[in-house]
Each structure stands twice: as C-alpha cells, then as structure tokens.
Write a protein that binds this DNA or RNA. Structure first.
Length: 274
DNA sequence: CATTTCACCTGGTGGC
DNA sequence: TGCCACCAGGTGAAAT
C-alpha cells in the first residue's frame, strides 16, 4: 500500500495515539517471512518497553523504545510492504484476517499489524548491540538541488527505475514516481543521465510538491489503504496519470498511456511528457 | 558494480 | 456461479 505520504500519515497517527504507552504483552502469527528478527527475540525485546516516539524514515516506520521510560535503548521497525496496515484498536474490536502482530498496551488499547500479502517486515533492534536504523537513500523532501542532480549522474537506467531505487531516494514508489514525472513533463523511459540539470530540478520540485500535497490529504487510498484510525486518504482524487489509462489527460485531453517499466505499470501523457 | 527480471503472497476485478 | 487471466502501494535475490 504505502509510499512516503501514506507511511508518514500512518506514523503520525500512531505516534499521536500511543506515544508514551507501554507494551505489556505481544502476540505474533506464525508467518515466518514477516519476521526479519526471530519472533522470540522480538517478543522479548518489545514486552515491557515504553514507546517514546514513532516516526517515518523512507518507507519504514520506526518505534523508539525504552526499558527505563527515558533513554532510547531499542527500536521496532515496521515496513508495510504492499498491503500492510498498522491499526490502533480497542481490544474488543474484531481481529481482522491476516493479523500478524498484536501489541497489548498498558492503556488497554492494542496496536495491530495486518498484512494479507505478507510483503511487510517486522524488525527489532537492541541499540546496545547494534546501530540505529538508517534508510540507505536520501529523503526526497530534504535533499537539495546539487545532491539530487548528483544522484542520477552516470545512471543509464530509465529515470522512473532510478526514482524507485530506494538506495538513491528513500520513500518514492509507483504512484508518486508516475505523478512527479507527469508534473515535470518527463517521459518515464528517458535515461536518467540524459536529463538536463533544469529537468532534474523540475523533477525534484515536482516530487516535493506532490509528496507534500499527498501528505496534507492523508495519502492515496488506491484500494484498501487506511491510516492508523482506519480513515481513507484523498490524494487518489488528485492523480493525473496513475491508474488513469485511456482517460483524458487533465491538461491536454490526450488519452493516458500505460506501459510496463521495471516490472511495474507505468502511466504517462504521451503529449505532455517528452 | 549497475541493471533487469522474477519470486514472494493474497485478493479483487472483469471476461467468458 | 465458476473458472481463469491479469492486476495490485515493494523489495531482495539471482541472472545478465
């Protein structure tokens, strides 16, 4: 489900609702791929710890944890994959199918991780034994013009494939790659190293605007995405190309075209994007 | 190393 | 109603 705006929305919602709460008990499903750190270690690490803060890094949600309720000594890192959800629920609310984690909190509420396709991952880090989690790529909302341009120097892959590469930029996914390329008038198949400095700067600014706009609208609810409160986002109403194959371009009326690129459905306006 | 392809999963949709 | 093909917000391993 989730790219940067959806993950940001969820992290903010979870932080607002359970910051300061304490994990008193943990339940995990048996799906082995879900647990990047062995289930037993995660359960032991989480139980009894206080959640000091929750925030987003790239497409990851990071829980800052503490045994002493003051100094951060551990992290719980959640990646939602394609269909993952984090929900803060009352314990009597029915447990959805495909629930893989239930964190029972001191306040009586419950944090649930639900993930039908099981592409999501849960990881626990003891900061006394390992370094803190860091995204490999740069944050597209924080990077400046020269650093952004440098990322694509010498890259011969299509610009869209480079945008999806998380070790370059952390957080851009299929929707926002297509939308930002539309708003900067660039064809997804253009080789990254063939873009002019001016085009790259248009792309950087378009990315910032699209991502910030989407965050303001609570993300894109394409099929079943909901935030920590179960609320849908509204940015899907603003999509110009993503999943609008055959529909008229909002700017020029030309039918939106769909191609396959880097294994992903890719949408663009053949007239506006060059 | 850079790049591309594919497997990993379940569920929804639309055609016949 | 059933069956089948195809599609879906992501990524990491394997192949090229």
């Amino acid at each position: 489900m989730p790219e940067l705006p959806e993950v940001e929305t969820i992290a903010r919602g979870v932080n607002k609702r359970i910051r300061g709460d304490r994990i008193v008990q943990v339940w995990f499903s048996r799906a082995p791929q879900t647990f990047k750190t062995p289930r037993k270690l995660q359960a032991e690490g989480l139980t009894g710890r206080t959640i000091l803060a929750v925030h987003r890094t790239g497409k990851h949600i990071v829980f800052e944890l503490s045994r002493s309720a003051s100094e951060i000594d551990a992290q719980w890192i959640v990646h939602l994959g394609m269909t993952g959800r984090l929900l803060v629920s009352s314990p009597d609310f029915p447990v959805p199918a495909h629930t893989h984690a239930r964190l029972f909190l001191e306040s009586g509420r419950e944090l649930r991780f639900v993930d039908p396709r099981r592409f999501g991952r849960l990881e626990f880090r003891d900061l006394n034994r390992r370094s803190a989690f860091a995204a490999p790529g740069d944050d597209p909302l924080a990077i400046g013009e020269p650093e952004f341009a440098a990322l694509f120097r010498g890259r011969r892959s299509p610009i869209k494939a480079a945008l999806l590469n998380q070790s370059l930029l952390a957080g851009v996914g299929n929707i926002y790659a297509d939308e930002s390329l539309f708003h900067s008038n660039i064809r997804p198949r253009r080789r990254a190293n063939r873009l002019t400095r001016l085009e790259l700067e248009r792309l950087r600014l378009a990315l910032c605007e699209v991502l910030n706009h989407a965050i303001r609208l609570g993300g894109s609810s394409v099929s079943d995405y909901v935030d920590a409160d179960g609320e849908r986002g509204f940015f899907q109403l603003e999509h110009c190309v993503y999943q609008r194959t055959g529909e008229p371009c909002r700017r020029c009326g030309t039918p939106i075209r769909r191609i396959l690129l880097a294994g992903r459905g890719t949408h663009y306006c053949p007239n506006c994007q060059r």
